[in-house]
Measured scan of single mutants.
Amino acid sequence: SELMNSSKLIRMLEEDGWRLVRVTGSAHHFKHPKKPGLVTVPHPKKDLPIGTVKSIQKSAGL
């Protein structure tokens, strides 16, 4: 199965306009000026399962 580095996923979010608002432990929480909701990324993780990545991307509207 495909894995993604959390840094790469965070870069994709930031390029889309998401900004880090809070860190709780290894959970990084992002908000967007125009899009609704809060997106949480486990970080640092070298090997996020593709299912997790897809669900984060979906929440972020990517």
Rank of each mutant, 00 (worst) to 15 (best):
G51Q: 14
M12L: 11
K46Q: 14
E15Y: 08
V39C: 04
H28W: 09
P49G: 09
W18D: 00
M4L: 08
L48T: 03
I50M: 11
L9F: 03
K46R: 06
V41Y: 00
R11L: 12
G17V: 00
L38Y: 13
V21P: 00
R11W: 11
P42E: 10
L13C: 02
P49I: 03
V23W: 07
K31A: 11
E2G: 09
H29S: 12
S7V: 11
G51E: 15
W18V: 00
T40W: 14
K34M: 11
G61Y: 02
K35A: 03
S6H: 03
T40L: 07
P49F: 05
M4D: 05
V21K: 05
V21H: 10
A60W: 00
K45R: 13
P42Q: 07
S7W: 13
P44Y: 05
I56E: 02
V41C: 04
K58S: 09
K8T: 15
T24D: 14
Q57M: 15
H28M: 07
T52M: 14
T24A: 11
K35S: 03
L62S: 04
S1T: 13
S59R: 11
L3G: 14
L20Y: 02
L48D: 01
A27D: 15
T24G: 09
M12V: 09
M12F: 07
K34Y: 14
K34C: 14
L9G: 01
H29V: 14
V39S: 01
L48F: 05
K35Y: 03
R22H: 14
I10G: 01
G61N: 06
G61H: 05
H28Y: 10
K54P: 02
G25Y: 10
A27L: 15
G61L: 03
G17R: 02
H43L: 02
P42K: 05
V23Y: 06
V39E: 01
L9Q: 02
H43V: 02
P33R: 09
L48M: 08
R22L: 15
I56R: 01
H32S: 02
A60R: 01
E15V: 08
E15I: 06
V41N: 00
H43A: 03
E14T: 08
S1E: 15
P44D: 04
K58H: 14
D16K: 04
E2W: 06
H28Q: 07
P33G: 09
K58G: 06
V21F: 10
E15F: 06
V23I: 13
G37Q: 06
D47L: 09
E14V: 10
K31V: 09
P44K: 03
P42Y: 05
P36R: 12
D16S: 05
R19I: 15
